[in-house]
Design a protein around this nucleic acid. Structure first.
Lengths: 104, 104
DNA sequence: TTCTTTCTTCCATAATTTTCGAATTAGATC
DNA sequence: GATCTAATTCGAAAATTATGGAAGAAAGAA
């Protein structure tokens, strides 16, 4: 993946996280572990209409931050921990390389 | 600072980073070190009209990710490394505490 | 089949964001 | 003062995002 599209991708991820509801959802799912958290449990946590929440969940999945899996009528969402680590690392990449001294 | 407003604040920071130009700017400034980077140098890096860039810089400063300092007619922008660290840590806070096993 | 539960998609409206030329400010230099 | 340079603010159009009721889909139970 080239530099420009990597930037676009990470910007998309950050944009997805840049909304109070979605950030709250992501943290809840991150804390829920690898097995994932059911959409209904997420809804109880954020207290919003199902349709509104569904849009936000889709945005997080589209960005590649969450994965989803269905079990019967239940839809489970889990964090893509690798993607998330890649994102938080990206922001710090080459910190201070153009400055004098170190800082990070 | 309470939990809700901390969430709002970090969502605002992430939203500020959730744009390709602003993410590129932030990384450039992060790499520029503590002394900061002049607006003109940033403009050369992103190749955009000054007015457009100025809006993006303001957004990053308003979010608390950049600080600014004037020297004559030059405006220097520097990363608030503490704020940035607080942000990237926040996303991972209490990872897996509601799940079984560990992952982070 | 009919009903219930769980969740998504459709649709329209409202609100916010992005863009950049033109005008303006602020400081340095002649 | 006049002028140049560096950068911000104004203003207005275009594009994107956010919200949630209503309708639909998918799985299971009665």
């Amino acid at each position: 993946m080239n530099v420009a599209s990597k930037l676009e991708h990470h910007a998309e991820e950050l944009s997805a996280l840049g909304h109070p509801v979605r950030l709250k959802v992501l943290r809840f799912v991150v804390q829920g572990g690898r097995d994932g958290t059911a959409a209904g449990d997420i809804q109880a946590h954020v207290d919003l209409p199902a349709s509104t929440l569904s849009h936000h969940l889709k945005r997080l999945v589209d960005a590649g931050l969450l994965t989803t899996r269905n079990e019967g009528t239940f839809h489970y969402y889990a964090a893509d921990y690798k993607a998330l680590r890649g994102l938080t690392d990206f922001v710090w990449e080459d910190c201070c390389k153009r400055g004098k001294g170190t800082c990070c």
